[in-house]
Amino acid sequence: SYYEILDVPRSASADDIKKAYRRKALQWHPDKNPDNKEFAEKKFKEVAEAYEVLSDKHKREIYDR
């Protein structure tokens, strides 16, 4: 789930989600993982997609249904 990707509970606040996104984006940024760039790019995209949905109140409500 998007919550698992960002490592936050379903009850996470918008601020918690933003902090988790920043932490995970740094962790999986391809430039930070030169030895495993392809895998890092995949993870980085997953993190971005999760944040896009969970950071938008309307999209998150739909996702949580």
Rank of each mutant, 00 (worst) to 15 (best):
S1H: 09
S1T: 12
S1Y: 11
S1L: 13
S1Q: 08
S1V: 06
Y2R: 02
Y2V: 03
Y2N: 02
Y2Q: 01
Y2D: 00
Y3T: 01
Y3S: 00
Y3R: 01
Y3N: 01
Y3Q: 00
Y3E: 01
E4W: 09
E4R: 09
E4G: 07
E4K: 11
E4Q: 11
I5A: 06
I5Y: 05
I5S: 04
I5Q: 04
L6C: 01
L6D: 00
L6N: 00
L6T: 00
L6V: 01
L6G: 00
L6P: 00
L6Q: 00
D7T: 03
D7A: 08
D7K: 04
D7V: 03
V8G: 01
V8W: 00
V8I: 14
V8Y: 00
V8Q: 03
P9N: 07
P9Q: 09
P9G: 08
P9A: 10
P9D: 10
P9S: 10
R10E: 08
R10N: 10
R10A: 08
R10F: 13
R10W: 11
S11Y: 13
S11P: 03
S11A: 09
A12E: 01
A12H: 01
A12P: 03
S13F: 04
S13Y: 03
S13W: 02
S13A: 06
S13M: 05
A14N: 11
A14I: 14
A14H: 12
A14V: 14
A14Y: 15
D15T: 10
D15I: 10
D15F: 08
D16P: 01
D16W: 06
D16N: 04
I17H: 00
I17L: 07
I17D: 00
K18M: 14
K18E: 15
K18V: 13
K18D: 15
K18G: 08
K19G: 07
K19L: 13
K19A: 15
K19S: 12
A20T: 02
A20S: 05
A20Y: 02
A20Q: 05
A20W: 01
A20D: 01
Y21R: 03
Y21G: 03
Y21I: 02
Y21Q: 03
Y21A: 07
Y21K: 02
Y21E: 02
Y21S: 02
Y21P: 00
R22G: 10
R22I: 15
R22Q: 15
R22D: 15
R23N: 13
R23A: 14
R23Q: 14
K24W: 07
K24C: 08
K24Q: 07
K24H: 05
K24T: 04
K24R: 07
K24D: 01
K24V: 06
A25I: 14
A25V: 14
A25F: 15
A25K: 11
L26I: 12
L26F: 10
L26M: 14
L26Y: 10
Q27I: 11
Q27D: 06
Q27K: 09
Q27H: 09
Q27W: 07
W28A: 03
W28F: 09
W28N: 03
W28R: 01
H29A: 12
H29W: 07
H29M: 07
H29L: 09
H29D: 14
H29G: 10
H29Y: 06
P30T: 06
P30V: 06
P30C: 06
P30M: 05
D31A: 10
D31R: 08
D31L: 11
D31I: 08
K32H: 15
K32S: 15
K32M: 15
K32C: 14
N33E: 04
N33T: 05
N33P: 04
N33I: 04
P34R: 11
P34D: 07
P34L: 13
P34I: 11
P34F: 09
D35E: 13
D35W: 11
D35R: 08
D35Q: 12
D35C: 12
D35A: 13
D35K: 09
N36M: 11
N36E: 07
N36D: 09
N36A: 10
K37S: 09
K37W: 09
K37E: 08
K37L: 13
K37G: 06
E38V: 11
E38L: 11
E38I: 12
E38Y: 07
E38M: 10
F39W: 14
F39N: 07
F39A: 15
F39C: 09
A40H: 05
A40T: 05
A40V: 05
A40K: 03
A40R: 05
A40M: 06
E41T: 12
E41Y: 10
E41N: 09
E41Q: 13
E41H: 10
K42I: 14
K42A: 13
K42Q: 13
K42L: 13
K42W: 10
K42N: 09
K43C: 09
K43D: 02
K43Y: 08
F44G: 05
F44V: 04
F44Y: 13
F44L: 14
F44T: 06
F44K: 04
K45T: 07
K45E: 07
K45W: 09
K45Q: 12
K45I: 08
K45R: 14
K45A: 13
K45F: 09
E46A: 10
E46I: 06
E46D: 08
E46R: 05
V47L: 14
V47G: 02
V47E: 01
V47Q: 01
A48W: 14
A48E: 14
A48M: 15
A48P: 00
E49C: 08
E49P: 00
E49K: 11
E49Y: 07
A50Y: 00
A50L: 00
Y51S: 01
Y51H: 04
Y51T: 01
Y51A: 03
Y51I: 02
E52A: 14
E52W: 13
E52P: 01
V53Y: 05
V53D: 01
V53M: 05
V53P: 00
V53T: 12
V53L: 04
L54N: 00
L54W: 01
L54P: 00
L54I: 03
S55E: 04
S55Y: 07
S55L: 05
S55I: 10
S55G: 15
S55Q: 06
S55K: 09
D56P: 01
D56F: 03
K57W: 10
K57L: 10
H58G: 12
H58S: 13
H58N: 15
H58K: 13
H58A: 15
K59Q: 10
K59L: 14
R60P: 01
R60K: 10
R60M: 03
R60F: 03
R60H: 03
E61V: 06
E61R: 07
E61T: 06
E61N: 07
E61W: 09
I62Q: 12
I62N: 10
I62P: 03
Y63P: 02
Y63D: 02
Y63S: 02
Y63K: 03
Y63V: 03
Y63Q: 02
Y63L: 04
D64Y: 02
D64G: 02
D64E: 04
D64N: 04
D64V: 01
D64A: 02
R65D: 05
R65F: 08
R65Q: 13
R65W: 08
R65A: 11
R65P: 04
